[in-house]
C-alpha cells in the first residue's frame, strides 16, 4: 500500500506543497473508503473532516420535503470534498452521497485547524488552495443558476 504522504503529494490539491507542510498534514490524515450508496456526510452534521478524493464519484445533494432530491454537483478523482471544516460553525450544508465505491484521504478538520493556528504559514498555504476551490464553485453555481441552456423567458 502506498504511504499516505505519497498519495497526498500526488493529489492536485496539494501539488507543490513543501515537504514540511505535507508532513504536518499527514499527521491529520487517514485512508477511508465509502461503498456505493453510502452517505459520507449529511446536511447539518458537524464538519469534522474533509476529503481528498482518489477514486470514485460523490454527489452533493440537497433535499426538500415534497420535492425530489436534487444533485447540485458531482465530485470525483482529483477533487476535494467539503470545506465546511474551515468555517465556523463547522456544519455540513449538503448531503455527500457516494455514487460509486469511493476512496479518499480524510483530513481531520479540528487537527488541521489547530496546526494552522500554530503555524500560520501552513494556514496560508492551505488557504491559497481552498479559496480557489470555493471561488470556482461559486462561479459554477452562478452559471448553473443562470440556466444557460434553457429557453429564456
Amino acid at each position: 500500500m502506498e504511504s499516505l504522504e505519497k498519495i497526498l503529494v500526488q493529489h492536485p490539491f496539494l501539488k507543490n506543497l513543501e515537504q514540511k507542510y505535507v508532513q504536518l498534514i499527514v499527521g491529520c490524515a487517514s485512508n477511508v473508503r465509502f461503498d456505493s450508496g453510502t452517505f459520507i456526510y449529511r446536511e447539518g452534521e458537524d464538519a469534522n473532516y474533509f476529503y481528498i478524493l482518489r477514486t470514485g464519484k460523490v454527489a452533493l445533494e440537497i433535499h426538500d420535503s415534497g420535492r425530489e432530491t436534487i444533485t447540485i454537483e458531482t465530485l470525483g478523482e482529483g477533487d476535494v470534498l467539503g470545506w465546511a471544516w474551515l468555517v465556523p460553525p463547522y456544519r455540513r450544508h449538503a448531503d455527500a452521497h457516494a455514487l460509486e465505491l469511493t476512496r479518499a484521504i480524510a483530513l481531520d478538520g479540528k487537527c488541521l485547524r489547530d496546526k494552522c493556528r500554530d503555524d500560520h504559514n501552513l494556514g496560508y498555504e492551505l488557504m491559497m488552495r481552498i479559496v480557489p476551490l470555493i471561488t470556482h464553485q461559486l462561479q459554477a453555481t452562478q452559471l448553473q443558476l443562470m440556466d444557460v441552456y434553457g429557453v429564456k423567458k
Binding site: 464519484k57 454527489a59 425530489e68 444533485t71 458531482t74 459554477a140 452559471l143 441552456y149
Partner: peptide, 18 residues
Amino acid sequence: SVDTAKRNWMGDVGVVTK
C-alpha cells in the same frame, strides 16, 4: 455533465467547464 439532476442520474453534475 448536466447543470442539475434528480437522484437517478449517475453521471456528472456541474458546469461543463469544470
